[in-house]
Every structure is written in structure tokens, then in C-alpha cells.
Design a protein around this nucleic acid. Structure first.
Lengths: 110, 110
DNA sequence: AGCCTATGCCTAGGTTTCCTAGGCATGGAT
DNA sequence: ATCCATGCCTAGGAAACCTAGGCATAGGCT
């Protein structure tokens, strides 16, 4: 499945709901939540997380006391705002697309 | 509004429902159907139509007997198949994204 | 007549986004 | 001892979209 520009929203949503999570777990969470629809490669997720951090939407820290080294990400206040905005954007897109692809059907209905 | 990889679906949908249409009218149709959500620049639409034609999903002809020269596009049988496929893809994406961003809410509900 | 706007087509180039294809290190199971 | 899963990373390419133009003509207005 193709992400098509909505990766940021998905990442922000996972981080918002699941709290501090490391990258690998984000990938797993997306796979599980979407029931396998989204199986996003690491080469996509890690750079995206770095970009979000550069943008100030998340902060990361290296987690101690775990068997392996993990970088744990967490939303910033700006990140929460961005999440809401992206979600609104997403709903707008869905409404728009539905309006276009559903036009024929809608016209056929009373 | 950002199209994010779904332009092909929108174009195919318009051409499928509205029959033979020229490029400028496609832009207008998208704007109207979506109630202004999609106002897609010509620099986006024309190359996209050309790409669809190269892919064999649409055919075009120059329309005669109109005040201005117009290139009119029409879906091919392959185009109709592609439209259905893209629509299915779109629904899959929506389901997936909703599952991810709605997880917190869904978990909170019975 | 001259001008401006809307119609209608087009391309070149840049930016962004994502994926492919690797590399690297370690913990646990066989 | 070996292999797989975990866990991180980058470089480079491909695709998609937009910006920013250019070009031509019809029709309205002054």
C-alpha cells in the first residue's frame, strides 16, 4: 500500500496515541493498527522521523536500560497541533475525493 | 489542497462519469464537484493526462468545430479497469488510515 | 481600433516524498 | 557457532506535484 503523502499524519497519530515509542515499534504499530495494510519500510520511517524532529514536532532520546539501543520519540506541543491540523487536512481530502468519485452515484440518487 | 498521489483516480473518475472532456473542463469539473476543494493547476493536469494517454488509459483527439482548439480525452477499456482498481486502492487507503488515526477512539468505544 | 480577460493548450525545472538497497551492531534461539 | 530478529542508519533514484512561465485566440469593453 502506498502512503502518498500521509506518512506524517500516521506517524504523528501513533506517537500521539501510543506515547513514547521507538522507530521499530512505530513500524510494528502501523502494521498492527492497519491490519497489515501499512507495512512501511525502515528506509521510509526513519528519515521521516528525523524530518519531524528537525521540524520540532517530535523529540527523541536514546533509551537506557533496554537490551538494545533504541531511540525513543515523543510528540512536542507543536507536534500535537500538527497532528490535529493534518487530521483535518486528511478529512478534507477524503471529503473532496468522495465528492468527485461519488458524483455519478450521488447524481443517480434522490 | 494537496492531491497526494490520487490525481489519476480523480481524472479517471471525471472522465468515466462525464464522458469525453477536454483538459480545461476537467479542471473545472474537479473544482465544481469538490466544491472548491480541488483547484488543480494546469501544470499538474495536462502532464497527468499525457501520462494517462501514454499508459493507454485514455485516448485524445483534437476537437473540430469548436471556437477554440481543444483536446478531448476519453477513457479506454483499460482506463475503466484502472479506474475501478484505483478506486479500490483508495478505499483501502482510507480504511487503513482511519484504522490508524481512529485507534485511540475505537479502543475507547465498546 | 486597442486592450484586457477568459479560454485553452503546453513545457521545463525544482521540490518533496517515498522506496530500494544496501550497511552495521547485538541478543537470543538452535 | 550460526542464524534470525531486533534496531538503527544513509545514499541515491524514481515519481508526483507545483511554480512559473510561454503561446494563441475569442469576445467584451472603451
Amino acid at each position: 500500500m502506498d502512503i502518498r503523502g500521509h506518512l506524517d499524519l500516521l506517524l504523528l497519530a501513533v506517537l500521539a496515541d501510543a506515547g513514547p515509542v521507538h522507530g521499530y515499534a512505530v513500524i510494528a504499530a502501523l502494521r498492527e493498527r492497519s491490519q497489515g495494510v501499512f507495512d512501511i519500510p525502515e528506509g521510509t520511517v526513519y528519515p521521516a522521523l528525523h524530518k519531524l524532529e528537525r521540524a520540532g514536532l517530535v523529540v527523541s532520546r536514546w533509551e537506557q536500560a533496554t537490551p538494545r539501543r533504541r531511540r525513543v520519540y515523543e510528540l512536542t506541543p507543536d507536534g500535537r497541533v500538527a497532528r490535529t491540523a493534518k487530521q483535518r487536512e486528511w478529512r478534507g481530502l477524503v471529503r473532496g475525493v468522495q465528492a468527485v468519485i461519488g458524483s455519478a452515484t450521488l447524481q443517480g440518487m434522490a
